Amino acid sequence: MEPRGFLTRLLECAFLFAFSAWLIRTAVRCLIEVWPVLAVIAILALIGTIGWRVYRHWRDTGQW
C-alpha cells in the first residue's frame, strides 16, 4: 500500500464531508415529510397505553 499524498487525502475528506452533508439533508427532508404521521402514531400509542393502564387498574381493584 503506497502512501497517499496530502492533496489526495484532502480531496477524499472533502468528498466524504459533502456526501455526509447530502445524506443528512435528505434524511431531514424525509423526516419533515413524515413527522405528522409519526406524531399521530405516538399520540395513539400513548392514549392506548394510558387507557390500558386505567382499565387494568379498574378491573383488578374494582375502585379508583
Rank of each mutant, 00 (worst) to 15 (best):
F15D: 08
F15P: 00
F15A: 08
L16W: 12
L16P: 00
L16G: 01
F17Y: 13
F17D: 05
F17K: 11
F17S: 14
A18F: 12
F19D: 10
F19G: 00
S20C: 09
S20L: 10
S20W: 03
S20I: 03
S20Q: 07
A21C: 15
A21R: 11
A21L: 14
W22F: 15
W22R: 11
L23S: 09
L23R: 12
L23M: 12
I24C: 04
R25W: 10
T26D: 07
T26V: 08
T26A: 13
T26L: 09
V28M: 03
V28D: 01
R29D: 06
R29E: 09
C30D: 09
L31S: 11
I32K: 14
I32S: 05
I32D: 04
I32M: 08
E33W: 15
E33Q: 10
E33I: 06
E33K: 14
V34Q: 05
W35E: 03
W35A: 03
P36T: 01
V37R: 12
V37H: 05
V37G: 01
V37N: 03
L38E: 01
A39Y: 01
A39P: 00
A39N: 02
V40L: 09
V40C: 04
V40I: 14
V40W: 02
V40M: 07
I41M: 05
I41N: 01
A42L: 15
A42I: 06
A42Y: 01
I43G: 00
I43C: 04
I43P: 00
I43K: 00
I43V: 11
L44D: 02
L44G: 01
L44N: 04
A45P: 00
A45R: 13
A45S: 15
L46V: 05
L46I: 09
L46N: 12
I47R: 05
G48S: 12
G48C: 08
T49N: 04
T49S: 10
T49I: 07
I50N: 04
G51W: 03
G51V: 00
G51I: 01
G51T: 06
W52H: 13
W52V: 02
W52K: 10
W52M: 06
R53Y: 11
R53A: 13
V54H: 05
V54N: 04
V54M: 06
Y55E: 04
Y55I: 03
R56H: 12
R56A: 15
R56P: 00
R56L: 08
H57W: 10
H57R: 15
H57I: 07
H57D: 13
W58G: 03
W58D: 06
R59F: 07
R59S: 10
R59C: 04
R59D: 07
R59T: 11
D60I: 06
D60G: 02
T61L: 08
T61Q: 08
T61V: 08
T61Y: 14
G62W: 02
G62T: 06
G62V: 06
Q63T: 08
W64Y: 11
